[in-house]
């Protein structure tokens, strides 16, 4: 797909409008915006949408063979769901749950109530369409951190806001002459691996972790 621009801001290709609204409101609480940029400025919701709608969402690098057992925590993730399935099922269950509460859509709740609900998901194991709520929360949080801190080529970390915030220079490749200047303040603007040389970052709709095996 080369360096074609990705979807325009706000245009979702995996989430339906209700799901998109919940995820946007949730990530806005997970990494809120204040005097420092948050998940919304970074485009985290769009990053998650792109990931779930692409190879990663379809289960790339996830072994999917059965049989299935819950296992112990040290054995890691053992559900049959791809990330896309996991989100779809959990978000459907969350939508019903929110509706039952009768307080209107989640995105309109007070921040304090939103935080309480997210904490409940994080600390509980309530069944969300086959997905324990803590497993859903961990998946959402994992993707949120990735979308906040990744290279902007993936549609998150828009404008490299998080890299500017922490001082990470990005894809820059040479510190040979600086490494022994101990404690130096590195002030060069960060660089994306998809920087086009004019200060613009070209979005890549999907970069699979690994191309198909070519053989000889």
């Amino acid at each position: 797909m080369g360096s074609q621009p990705g979807p325009a801001n706000g245009q979702m290709r995996f989430f339906n409008p209700g799901e998109a609204a919940f995820v946007r409101a949730a990530v806005a609480r997970l990494i809120p915006s204040d005097e420092l940029p948050g998940a919304i400025e970074a485009g985290v919701d769009q990053f998650i949408d792109i990931q779930l709608g692409g190879a990663w969402g379809a289960g790339e690098r996830l072994f999917r063979g059965g049989p299935w057992h819950p296992g112990s925590p040290s054995q890691g993730y053992q559900l049959p769901f791809t990330p896309a399935e996991l989100f779809r099922n959990a978000l459907r269950a969350i939508a019903s749950d929110v509706e039952l509460k009768g307080k209107g859509p989640f995105e309109h709740w007070h921040a304090k109530d939103q935080d309480a609900y997210l904490t409940e998901l994080q600390k509980g194991t309530r069944d969300l369409g086959g997905v324990p709520s803590n497993v859903f929360f961990e998946s959402l949080w994992g993707l949120t951190v990735e979308g906040f801190l990744c290279d902007p080529v993936y549609g998150g970390n828009r404008g490299m806001v998080s890299w500017k915030m922490i001082g990470f220079p990005g894809a820059y490749a040479n510190y040979y002459h600086l490494i022994d200047q101990h404690g130096i303040a590195f002030t060069r603007a960060p660089m994306s691996l998809a920087d086009n040389g004019r200060g613009e970052v070209m979005l890549h709709p999907d970069i699979p972790a690994q191309p198909m095996a070519k053989g000889q």
């Binding site: 990663w56 289960g59 790339e60 690098r61 996830l62 072994f63 999917r64 990735e146 990744c150 290279d151 080529v153 993936y154 990005g170 894809a171 490749a173 660089m191 994306s192 691996l193 998809a194 920087d195 970069i207 972790a209 690994q210 095996a213």
Partner: peptide
């Protein structure tokens, strides 16, 4: 580089690793 300097692809998605699927 700069393609190689992709944390998501190589560190998080483990692009150079044995295909566990």
């Amino acid at each position: 580089g700069p393609r190689m300097h992709d944390e998501l692809r190589y560190s998080i998605r483990k692009a150079l690793m044995q295909d566990n699927t």
